[in-house]
Write a protein that binds this DNA or RNA. Sequence first.
DNA 1: CTTGACACAGAACGAATGTTCGGATAGAAT
DNA 2: ATTCTATCCGAACATTCGTTCTGTGTCAAG
Lengths: 230, 230
Amino acid sequence: MAKKISDRHKQVLKVVQKHNDEYGYAPSYRDICEETEITSTSMVNYYLKQLEEVGYIQREENISRTLSVTEKAKRKYHQLLGITEDFINDMVRSLSVPMVGEIVASEPVPVPAGDIGLQDYENSVDLAASLIPRNADNENLFALEVKGDSMIDAMVNDGDIVIMKPSQEVKNGEMVAVRINEDETTLKYFFKEDDRVRLQPANPTMDPIFVEKSTPIEIQGKVVLVLRQI
Amino acid sequence: MAKKISDRHKQVLKVVQKHNDEYGYAPSYRDICEETEITSTSMVNYYLKQLEEVGYIQREENISRTLSVTEKAKRKYHQLLGITEDFINDMVRSLSVPMVGEIVASEPVPVPAGDIGLQDYENSVDLAASLIPRNADNENLFALEVKGDSMIDAMVNDGDIVIMKPSQEVKNGEMVAVRINEDETTLKYFFKEDDRVRLQPANPTMDPIFVEKSTPIEIQGKVVLVLRQI
DNA sequence: CTTGACACAGAACGAATGTTCGGATAGAAT
DNA sequence: ATTCTATCCGAACATTCGTTCTGTGTCAAG
């Protein structure tokens, strides 16, 4: 195992990445010699073996031109490898959030169980990742379509899409889907007060709901984004 | 020059594309034999020569594993090649809409003049293109941040972002930014009636505004999307 | 001073791989 | 009937290319 990634290692990484980008196929060991100060294919193999061991290179034994730089190496050496923001943006720019169902006041939120896979749902909503707060777990977001006018106090219309993340814990000021008394689901800003919970509508002209501690409420998720297509 | 692209040609195209996708490197001629009903490398060469002639394959002479399917072939045979909408979407998936300013009831909408370039504005909003209606002119969308509570009847909160497109013509049912009597800007669904215009709030519990033809109104843009980050 | 580890080199080898050759078959055109 | 073209095949060959071998030099550690 190499003690550290030397300049020669970095030269090799760079050539592999650059060749794949420019030619659309991997360099041979002899190609790497030509583009670096390495003069023998056994040294190329020596460096590649080490880069492979630390997970920066991928190759297939006894098959020609299979060298590729791994995602791990790209993240660590993106500047060296000439990987632009476009590449980084392409990795994080968009995500598909599964449309798991509908939200209505009369039913609990259909929070998916466990890890959500896109393949489990027929529809999804594509989002630019920059719209999602950094602390949201992008892996487990889900989308619900609002049915009916019962969410108007949340400034959410029939037909709007709410992007949510599963959560039972809430901080003050976060908007939650809360089921009150197993009777009604509503979207409200959540504030914990001394002896009760204040559920504040998004519509500033409407009054909050105060829920005594004796009333069971269930936090069914947090809202991170509302979308209204017109 | 092949008279036409036969099933065998298509098999070869498919294998080249599939191998590149799955393995990250190109197939050899023998790999292609194994994945098709072709039993000799000379026939593979025969088909590749023809595919190269019509511009569907790219390869380098005497260099191993350089086969790739060209963009021309991908566009023509995307279904055969298993090129999903994802590929097509990746080409058009997201767009950046410039944040040109704010919308408040007391000011006209700051509609940008002429073609909008991202470089003219410091901020932008990234959107998945699938959220935008097909008829919207993606080139000229602009974003405005809502200031104040004056758009509540439009179910739009202080801090929300509205995505708009410039437009002076409206169809019934579209949501517009309309300036009434050079006095107030509001977001409403627009309906032209016999002798007046009905501006319908998004909030179904609120009453519409009726504007007589004698009252000057100015359509300052159409709303295509509302975003609320929470 | 000796030893071991690391970096380096050229050469040889064997396998992988693309190209070419000679030939066969079927069908269309003359 | 003959010729031409397209399609097909296996084999051989040449080149490409990855792996291995043997050896050298440098430097740090003991």
